[in-house]
Amino acid sequence: MTATLRSLLRHETILAILLVLVLAALATQSDRFFTTANLLNQGRLMAEVGLVALVMTFVIVTGGIDLSVGSILGLTAILLGVFWHNLGLPLPVAMVLAIVAAGIGGLINGLIITRFKVPPLIATLATLALYRGLAEGISQARSVRGYPEWFFVLGQGEVLGVPTQLWILGALVVIAAVVLGLTTFGRATYATGANETGARFSGIGVDRTKLLIYTASGLVAGLAGVIFVSRVSTTRSDMGTGLELDVITAVVLGGTSIFGGRGTIIGTVLGLILMQALKNGLALSGVKGDGTIVVIGLVLILAIVASNLFSREGDG
């Protein structure tokens, strides 16, 4: 266990060094990159992906995957609008109900995966289509707009000079890191991913662990959906399309093994920051969007190659 821990830290060290190098390089390219205003703003832009990536780390550590997060985000946005506008519920109630619905969406994923033993990739591939379809069907492509001013605090406002959603992201980072790193639940998560049969034999509630994690994934995607609606002040059924790829890229870049059993929240956070810094910094230094995508793809492959090479040397 200590050996794996060490090799994990090694990936994060490499990532941290890479991040510092990238930040330094980008700062020399544009004097507008390393400013407080820009950095805080980038935090605002990455909050939704970040929130979902935190729970995705748990999902991937168990050896699973959740492709339906983008669709759940879209469905939550639509439901928020429907609950508030069409059913006339007070907005705070609508927000809670929409997030609860997202949690149910996640729970359904978990049930299909644990009860029916459907591999997570297929289960969430199907619900990716299903949830997006529900969002389209329920909304009939209509948008709900005209939210009260206080609602925009969540997505457009700030608290003590820092964007509101960045506080939420920060709080969840701490919670996720503690849960994954220090609790029995975290250990059960690692054990499930490292060796599921072994974990079952040693009395770990594998199915319960997975069920909780997929439900949490839905809940957090729902929370991200509400924040997203607040940030852009409207609901659309195509919100969050392609979110899953961004999220998985960040998590994998952060060193979480897609085979399960390995990964940390710190890694995911570093991966997120690296991705966002590249997107923003390259744009500021005049690289176009298509070029930025290429660079992110290269960095993803190279980072994992580098980390693999180093850890193999370490193994002797």
């Binding site: 897609i258 969007g289 930025t292 995508i293 290429v294 793809g297 290269l298 492959i301 190659v305 193999r312």
Partner: peptide, 26 residues
């Protein structure tokens, strides 16, 4: 890359997805 450098296929192909897509439009 997958076989000799032992990188999970989803990582390599996720990277390739970005590279090919961005490269094509560039």
């Amino acid at each position: 890359l997958i076989a000799y450098l032992r990188i999970p296929s989803i990582v390599v192909t996720l990277g390739m997805l970005s590279i090919l897509k961005g490269g094509l439009i560039s």
